[in-house]
């Protein structure tokens, strides 16, 4: 089922220059979509439009069968949550538990039910031991995990990660990537990740490549990454496994294209045996 349907979406911050131009795409429920494009391509604007933080100029956005409009906006927000880039800019609560509770309060969850829900999701993101801590005392990776717990606790259907790992140290990046992969595998949560990480693109089900407010290429990672020249023109890099194989083919190696490094190593080892 398609949980998000965007049709002919247009948006501009001012009267003269359109930021989003006639964008259409859809997202399957439970899928993991990555959106890539250089800075200023409109990626984050799309995220804000999907959550109703910005108001579209024309076109339509449908989420979970509901048209996003003024009347439905709160119902939409019960389905879509965003985790932003800067882990310091999204905390409200005095403790980790309070922070997770904030979204629940907004959804008018009875207060006697809250502790159980908070504990459940804190455990899920491996932050149970930190429930009484101040969010400011946490590392960046821990902060982002709390933010994700807050979104999960509200039982949302769609989570949008807006470069959620870009300000984290390597350890924090690893933590969040692992959590996102686990959520993708074990839950029916729909994940949309705005990213610069072409290695993350390889792990997703569907990719949208944006440039100048438009969706330029879309499809599976394999389909999208086959447009090598276009991607380079858009100042996007290819994942290492693609670049390395290209170098190997250029010096005369012949083996079937592999999507993972293990496969490349395997192919090379077979050539080694044959000689």
């Amino acid at each position: 089922m398609e949980i998000i349907k965007v049709k002919n979406l247009n948006f501009s911050y001012d009267e003269t220059t359109p930021t989003i131009k006639d964008v259409s795409f859809s997202v399957e429920e439970g899928s993991y979509t990555t959106i890539v494009g250089h800075n200023g391509s409109g990626k984050s604007t799309i995220a804000k439009l999907l959550d109703g933080l910005l108001e579209k100029k024309s076109g339509s956005i449908e989420i979970g069968g509901l048209e996003l409009n003024e009347a439905n906006i709160y119902k939409i927000r019960e389905q879509v949550g965003i985790v932003f880039q800067n882990p310091d800019n999204q905390f409200i609560g005095a403790t980790v538990a309070d922070d997770i509770a904030f979204g629940l309060e907004n959804q008018q969850v009875p207060s006697d039910e809250m502790p159980k829900i908070i504990e459940q999701y804190a455990k899920k993101v491996n932050m149970y031991d930190f429930l009484d801590k101040e969010p400011t005392k946490l590392s960046g990776g821990q902060k982002q995990r709390v933010a994700i717990a807050g979104v999960l606790a509200m039982n949302l259907k769609v989570i949008i990660l807006d470069e959620a790992t870009s300000m984290l140290d390597p350890q924090g990046k690893v933590e969040i990537n692992a959590l996102v992969n686990e959520l993708h595998e074990k839950s029916n949560l729909t994940i949309i990740s705005i990213t610069h990480d072409m290695e993350e693109v390889l792990r997703s089900d569907h990719v949208l490549v944006m440039d100048n407010g438009e969706v330029k290429i879309s499809g599976t990672p394999e389909e999208v990454l086959s447009n090598e020249k276009e991607l380079i023109d858009l100042k996007l890099d290819l994942p290492f496994v693609y670049k390395m194989q290209k170098e190997l083919y250029n010096v005369g190696f012949e083996f079937e294209k592999q999507l993972e490094l293990e496969g490349v190593v395997e192919s090379l080892c077979q050539l080694n045996l044959k000689r």
Partner: peptide
């Protein structure tokens, strides 16, 4: 996997050339 590679090599192109030497000979 037992493939010898010059430790000085860190560049993809040079690595490809090195692998060609190492694997294609013989």
């Amino acid at each position: 996997k037992g493939i010898k590679i010059n430790p000085e090599i860190f560049d993809m192109h040079e690595l490809a050339l090195e692998l060609k030497e190492e694997l294609k000979h013989g």
